[in-house]
Design a binder for these strands. Structure first.
Length: 452
RNA sequence: GGCCCUAUCGUCUAACGGUUAGGACACAUGCUUUUCAAGCAUGGAACCCGGGUUCGAUUCCCGGUAGGGUCACCA
């Protein structure tokens, strides 16, 4: 077979959505697998709805996902070849100019170009679905151009695909019903028929076509929420495709290696954000520590600033493992940070006296425990705080003897001022000996107030 | 409504006539160094219905039902 040529033909009438991304990903994997050429073609035929901004967004988001292409075109810049084809069709009497009432404004007369439909059955083979047949007589002499200068989508794609020697048309099944009329035009123009593969659409949670109504669809919005491109790429590719290895987590190269159109599914799949989050957590775990630290630090710093809490980069650095196991998406960290979940790492908490004691444990016992713990913690050298295990072993025997909850809860609360937090040893390790002892002292002073 | 497509746990899926119908996400319970998170273990959870074909159908065929897509001078 001659070399493979595929296309990404988004229409720039909206932000890049996950459906656009999927179309690009599937074409990309296929082309790269076979060493083919990828053509990005902005289908801006509809001048009223198409904008430069949308086109830029699509290009930007696809690049963000790590996709590339070899050639770039805009449909409107291809008008000469559309006109040539249209003229030829009319000259051959395969299309004709028709004067009729304008649909947009009643009473006006327009001259549209209609395709002379031979009216026969069209059967085409779809790699994913097998043979599909349509009786095209019901289509009638459909309109292919508003005027000689304004070709319509179904006409211009055929000319574009034909003149660009596209060999494989891989697109969503919403185009199945366009295929027979495109084939008719294609045959009238004498272009070879490409190989078709129509994959099913992503579904929203209500099982209808995924749209703004049924879920978040803009790639940009996932990006802003802090999803990683690898995660989105992996999830979108795998949803509706089972590679031979049946692996779910795969990087780009691995996916290219395994890709085959035949393995695409025939039925639609619900786009599940929970599973996407799971993928994202996975890729966040795999992220190099320094990159993770940079991003996490940025978010923490920004959040702390709003509450006038001093940011300490070295503390932020040691927070990497703590944060890493608590978030699936960067947005989670933003929310947690905003709720003050990490404030105590950077500034002493204002412990509520009434919450220091573990439920059911008296203030007297709690004071006794905290004092003992303080002694134990002050006896170990400051550099032992570099290892949470050493802190733990200093206190562990005592806690075991007196009741872990009774001892450890007040310690943890004294250090964090929160009902929920990482364990006290991890916290002590991060804030260091000095702050640890200071916070225990403060809790003790708070308790003395409540005792009266 | 016409035409086209589809049909396994809540969701994503495996199975290519014979399986205790497998896995992942989510969920529930338990465990681990109080709480939270993570991790680990365990558990509940599916073959749309009816006819055929066959010794035997989740699997093949037909019909029904349900869901989706599409019916523009949008793409």
């Amino acid at each position: 077979m001659e070399s493979i040529r595929v296309r990404f033909p988004p229409s720039p009438t909206g932000l890049c959505h996950v459906g656009t991304a999927r179309m690009a990903i599937l074409n990309y994997l296929f082309a790269r697998k076979h060493g083919g050429v990828i053509i990005f073609r902005s289908e801006d035929t509809d001048k009223e709805r198409s904008t430069k901004e949308f086109e830029e967004d699509i290009v930007e988001q696809l690049h963000w996902l790590g996709l590339e292409w070899d050639e770039f075109y805009r449909d409107t810049e291809l008008i000469d070849r559309h006109k040539e084809a249209l003229t030829r069709l009319i000259a051959d009497d395969k299309a004709y100019v028709s004067e009729e009432e304008g649909k947009k404004e009643a009473g006006t007369v327009v001259r549209v170009v209609r395709f002379r439909n031979p009216g026969r059955e069209v059967t085409f083979n779809d790699v994913i679905r097998g043979d599909i047949s349509f009786d095209t007589t019901e289509l009638g002499d459909f309109v292919i151009a508003r005027s000689i200068d304004e070709p319509l989508y179904n006409f211009s794609v055929v000319v574009n695909d034909g003149t660009m020697n596209i060999t494989h048309v891989i697109r969503g099944e919403d185009h199945i019903s366009n295929t027979p009329r495109q084939i008719l035009i294609q045959e009238a123009l004498g272009y070879p028929r490409p190989i078709y593969a129509h994959y099913p659409l992503f579904l929203g949670t209500d099982r209808s076509k995924l749209s703004k109504r049924t879920g978040d669809v803009a790639v940009k919005s996932y990006r802003e929420q802090g999803f990683l491109p690898e995660a989105l790429l992996n999830y979108i590719a795998i949803l509706g495709w089972t590679p031979p290895s049946e692996q779910e987590v795969m990087g780009r190269e691995e996916m290219i290696e395994e890709f085959d159109l035949k393995d695409l599914h025939k039925s639609g799949a619900v786009f599940d954000i929970e599973k996407l989050r799971w993928y994202n957590r996975h890729y966040l775990q795999a992220m190099p520590a320094d990159l993770f630290e940079a991003e996490a630090g940025k978010i923490l710093k920004e959040s702390l600033k709003g509450r006038n809490i001093p940011f300490d980069p070295s503390i932020a650095a040691s927070l990497v493992p703590v944060v890493r196991e608590r978030i699936a998406v960067w947005e989670d960290l933003r929310i947690h940070a905003q709720e003050g979940e990490y404030d105590f790492f950077f500034a002493d908490p204002a412990s509520e006296p009434s919450r220091i004691a573990q439920k059911g444990v008296s203030a007297e016992d709690t004071v006794r425990h905290l004092k003992s713990v303080k002694t134990l913690l002050s006896e170990i050298p400051a550099d032992a705080y570099s290892d949470p295990e050493q802190i733990k072993s200093a206190v562990w025997e005592y806690a075991g003897a007196e009741g872990r909850a009774a001892v450890l809860w007040p310690l943890r609360y004294a250090l964090t001022g929160r009902e929920r937090s990482p364990d006290p040893f991890e916290v002590a390790h991060i804030i260091g000996k000095e702050a640890t002892l200071r916070r225990v002292d403060f809790a003790l002073s708070q308790l003395s107030k409540v005792k009266v």
